[in-house]
Design a protein around this nucleic acid. Structure first.
Length: 347
DNA sequence: TTGGAATGGACAA
DNA sequence: TGTCCCTTCCAAT
């Protein structure tokens, strides 16, 4: 999936495209018809993320009339759409060209009509003016479609998609560990909670980093890359990792993940550790040859200039030489997910 | 045409 | 720990 940086980026995109607008909500696929009916015709007033969970807050029209004012809405006055993309969920956006909408955010695959270079104003050519813009027909199994004044958002393949109350939103958030991207760490303290949670467990630190109750938003790429950058053996029991090392991992995650949320792509390699001219000369094979397809990144096509095959130290690089020491990168299954690490740099 | 694989997690045992 | 679910894409038939 879409790790936490993607979900935060999504929440920002929803705020930019739809905040304050009355939305038409439907379920072209039909599996979310009841939930869509609850939200249809209400106003989007909040969009936020915690880890990999996204919450869109809708003002109930009747409550809105009773309250009378635009401001001072408590979470409990809203109906919330909770979405978790899971492994292959994705949002696809299209607009009338009045804003440079992000084309697709979610699972790392090509989306409807996506090209290698995404036009700055997707689908603008389809509209002759803002007034007669019509959303394109949904493609594929679209669970939810949100239509606003100038844009449409389609959701496919989510693990979770449901309408919940403010109470339920708080319950989900309370269960999650601290999120390195959030500027408002929970009262218990972000880094402190993370360090304590790891150090009271015998489970391997590699497994703990993927536990959303320990730290929210980290997925398989950030797990592998953060451990490499810390020089930490993923199989070390949590309780054996020095607190200062964990604090450094946290600080690194803050930088990496906030950068990812801004650019839309995960890049963890330092410039000096990349190969400057791979593929630049005819006959020079790219690192991602036949049988090793390139890792597609979540991106709107404009983020960063680092090629996908230069973005990581160890993720998806098993068998290739470590960028730092040349030792072949290892891979093994750990609790059902693939773990990548360099046995020389990480010990 | 088919069948793994994919940046995830809920649930049962 | 294992099984199942959600959907799409691309390499291998």
């Amino acid at each position: 999936m879409p790790e936490g940086h993607t979900v935060h980026r999504l929440a920002r995109t929803f705020a930019e495209l739809f905040a304050g607008q009355v939305l038409t909500v439907s379920s072209p696929q039909g599996r979310f018809s009841a939930g869509a009916a609850l939200l249809d015709g209400s106003r989007l007033v909040a969009a936020r993320a915690w880890g990999k969970q996204m919450f869109l807050g809708f003002a109930d029209p009747s409550v809105e009339r009773a309250a009378g004012t635009e401001g001072s809405r408590a979470d409990d006055d809203l109906r919330w759409l909770r979405v978790h993309l899971g492994l292959y969920g994705a949002w696809t956006f299209a607009g009338d060209g009045s804003s440079a909408v992000v084309h697709a955010i979610g699972a790392p695959r090509k989306r409807i009509g996506e090209r290698d270079s995404v036009p700055a104003r997707p689908l603008a050519a389809l509209a002759t003016s803002d007034d007669d813009w019509e959303p394109p027909a949904p493609r594929g199994a679209v669970r939810v479609r949100l239509v606003g004044e100038h844009a449409v958002a389609d959701l496919t393949g989510p693990t979770a998609c449901e309408v919940v109350s403010g109470d339920e939103v708080r319950a989900v958030e309370a269960r999650l560990g601290p999120d390195p991207i959030r500027e408002d760490p929970p009262p218990a303290g972000g880094p402190g909670r993370f360090v304590a949670a790891v150090r009271r467990s015998r489970t391997s630190v590699g497994q703990l980093l993927m536990n959303q109750d320990v730290v929210a938003g980290v997925g398989n790429i950030y797990r592998a890359e953060a451990l490499f950058r810390a020089g930490l053996d993923p199989l070390t029991p949590g309780r054996d990792v020095p607190a200062e090392t964990l604090r450094a991992v946290w600080d690194d995650l803050v930088v990496l993940m906030r950068d990812g949320a801004t650019t839309g792509a995960i890049v963890t390699t330092r410039p000096g550790d990349r190969e400057p001219d791979v593929g630049a000369h005819p006959g020079t094979p790219a690192r991602t040859g036949p049988g090793r397809p390139g890792v597609r990144q979540n991106t709107d096509g404009t983020a960063g200039s680092v090629p996908a095959d230069q973005a990581f130290y160890v993720y998806h690089r098993d068998g290739l030489p470590c960028r730092v020491c040349g030792t072949p990168v290892l891979m093994k299954d750990l609790a059902g997910r693939k773990l990548y690490w360099c046995p020389t740099c990480q010990r």
